[in-house]
Design a protein around this nucleic acid. Structure first.
Lengths: 238, 238
DNA sequence: GCCGCGGCTTGACGCAGGACAATTCCCATT
DNA sequence: AATGGGAATTGTCCTGCGTCAAGCCGCGGC
């Protein structure tokens, strides 16, 4: 996977530095700033299915996904779970809890064998004090997260199940360009992300296929009639 | 309301300074820092029922409630609305959109005649660059907001209507101490806040009263049996 | 006093979406 | 080719909550 190996013996630290520099949150940061952050960062490996942390664990920093995929899910003492987000390479999670100084409220579970970076809280705080640009980045990042949560809350409280599915497909679609989207995880997880049971999600998808709006091939969905989809979503107003 | 009037003629500015200093977000900030922020702040008055901003408006700063009460609500083209939060004196709102650099996604409506302070975006950014302590405050504040949104999302997706009502009463209760809570707005608004119709909210409340768990007197609710309430909420696990 | 009106409650009914259980499908093993 | 297991689909039934439509209660205006 590594085309050019790091030359010095300190491959651990320099790899961390390298990986961090690819995260949008840190991109463009001065190398010496990044180096200080890298010094407070450790690698964390998690095998498929393994937990990175659980609800209730104290939060000592935040994570960046270098390789793999992680699901964040709210869990119930009863064991019910609701997937909040599916996090891929480059994305970070856990900042909010770190800054709020509260224990985690979600579980983080690796969906594939993953490599994460754990950035230490104290290190980051020191760097924020030193470099206002980083503070701004973090503020913007947190704000975007908040914005997404509001959108989710809106979807759950104001949109029907079908509308949520359509909205989700639309979002994936505009990320990818051509009208072919791929679900980022197995259908049951996506269903949970959308506040649906797997069964009902399946029904909605196949109903849309029956109407000729989409074509479904396992996790790949081709959007045949974007306009028709929008219309289907709109069929519930007054 | 003013026990000691400001001595200089610049009563507007000094009142802003005074009011800002009471907001938790700014409390303890050095007076000269606060003065710079106050310079970029203007007063906004809104009569009961008046909109402070609408979804889609560009966001040029954030608001602090000095006097009054404001509801933040998601609205639908169709006109359905879902109250996200009811904001009282000292609390701020709109920071996330400001930092994210996106237009508002909620409407803000004054529930009573209100006095707000609008802190200008550029002013705040400049101050954040200058004073890392403020950056930390903002980060913590945003994070707490994110945390609350997660809790809301959890409530909506994992808890039943009755559980949400119980949770809400419990939260009000632990803010006030003695087992007497007062709803912060009319029942229909609180119901919306809890993702319920007014009708169903009413039913749940009266059912709890019939079980002898609470006593209801208009917006005042006395919690007679906290233990019983918890038990009622738990009556849905496996 | 009476009227009107906004907030709240109550009743009857309907439906979107969940629960449960049975198949079917798709691989990866062996 | 047989086997086993997890994912996905499908059928059937059920219920929590919304909707619609009357009432009711309290309060301010005239």
């Amino acid at each position: 996977m590594d085309t050019h190996a790091p030359r010095s013996g300190g491959n651990g630290a320099s790899r961390v530095h390298e990986l961090l520099s690819h995260a949008p949150l840190f991109r463009g940061l001065a190398p010496e700033d990044l180096a200080r952050i890298a010094a407070g960062t450790r690698e964390v490996r998690a095998a498929r299915g393994e937990a990175i942390f659980h609800r209730g664990d104290p939060c000592e920093g935040f994570h960046v996904v270098a390789v793999g995929r992680v699901k964040l899910a709210l869990v119930n003492p009863a064991g019910d779970e609701k997937v909040v987000e599916i996090v891929g390479p480059g994305m970070s999670f856990g900042e909010a809890l770190m800054f709020a100084g509260r224990p985690y409220i979600v579980d983080a579970i690796a969906l594939a064998d993953s490599l994460l970076l754990h950035v230490n809280k104290a290190t980051l705080f020191a760097e924020i004090d030193r470099e206002p640009a980083l503070a701004r980045r973090m503020l913007a990042s947190l704000s975007v997260r908040t914005h997404m949560l509001m959108k989710d809350l809106e979807a759950v409280s104001l949109h029907s199940a079908t509308q949520r599915v359509i909205g989700y497909l639309a979002r994936l679609d505009e990320e990818t360009g051509s009208h072919r989207v791929t679900l980022p995880a197995q259908k049951a997880l996506v269903a949970s992300r959308l506040n649906l049971t797997p069964e009902y999600f399946s029904r909605i998808l196949h109903d849309m296929a029956a109407r000729g709006l989409v074509r479904i091939d396992a996790r790949d969905i081709e959007i045949l009639d974007p306009e028709g989809l929008r219309a289907l979503g709109a069929a519930s107003d007054a």
